[in-house]
Write a protein that binds this DNA or RNA. Sequence first.
DNA 1: AAGAACTCCTGTTGGC
DNA 2: TGCCAACAGGAGTTCT
Length: 294
Amino acid sequence: MPELPEVETVRRGLEPAMTGAVLDRVEQRRKDLRFAFPERFAERLQGRRVTALGRRAKYLLADLDSGEVLVMHLGMTGRFTVERPGDAPSAPGDFHHAAGGNAVHDHVVFHLSNGFRITYNDARRFGFMALVERAGLEEHPLFRHVGIEPLGNALDGATLARLFAGRSAPLKAALLDQRLVAGLGNIYVCEALHRAGLSPSRAAGTLARKDGGPTARAERLATVIRDVLEEAVAAGGSTLRDYVHTDGSLGYFQHAFRVYDREGEPCPAPGCRGIVRRLVQSGRSTFFCGVCQR
DNA sequence: AAGAACTCCTGTTGGC
DNA sequence: TGCCAACAGGAGTTCT
């Protein structure tokens, strides 16, 4: 799925079209995605104005003037497309499907008062949408256990050490755990661990000192997590298979990958003679260099 | 109780 | 070229 940089890029693509607009009409074309849609989903949205479009972890949050929040998660293959049918140049076919989506997976279409049409397409249907009262959002089951935002002010070595203290799980698993740090996925965990020179198999607890304080490794890891996410957001995310921007264009951070999907290539770390290897941890591929990541 | 495996679903890719 | 197994950016649930 879209990880934090991809979700943030999608948010920035949707924001100018959605914020301030009224959801004139909502087409819900099936009863469920990963989960069932909320009761009376379309009716509860129609006529409501979007007052803000935010993000928490990998969730998009559209604030409505009803006091509810439309919560949207892209799962692995969810994508939003913004179109202005009225302005469409006479291109053969529309770019939405030219960009790779198949219309049979267009599950929700939002028709906005400003003329924009926003389509949610999701081949694997691992994404979902929910409606949650804004007042209780942070206590809602979807968000109650969501960890810290890595690009906020809460991520530093001391916080990582506190979150990881006493854990025997490998760093790879700990960083993927959304209850600890929210927004990282397989790609950016691999990239951050390589930048930090840390083995994905190292026990997470080894980043905390005996007194619970941060080690130099914890400080380093916190720094590179922010770096890699910030760089990826600036690049518009990474396009591998499914992910595209809301206008159909591609992210380009994939060209900056140091280890992800680079099995067999030389380790790009300065002076390192290692080869990027692939390892499976809890069923997911991990790419790393066994020489410079310890 | 933490950690790992299994599960949802479809599409693509690589090996033969 | 066709066929089939493996794999894919997530994460809730269920096991051990």
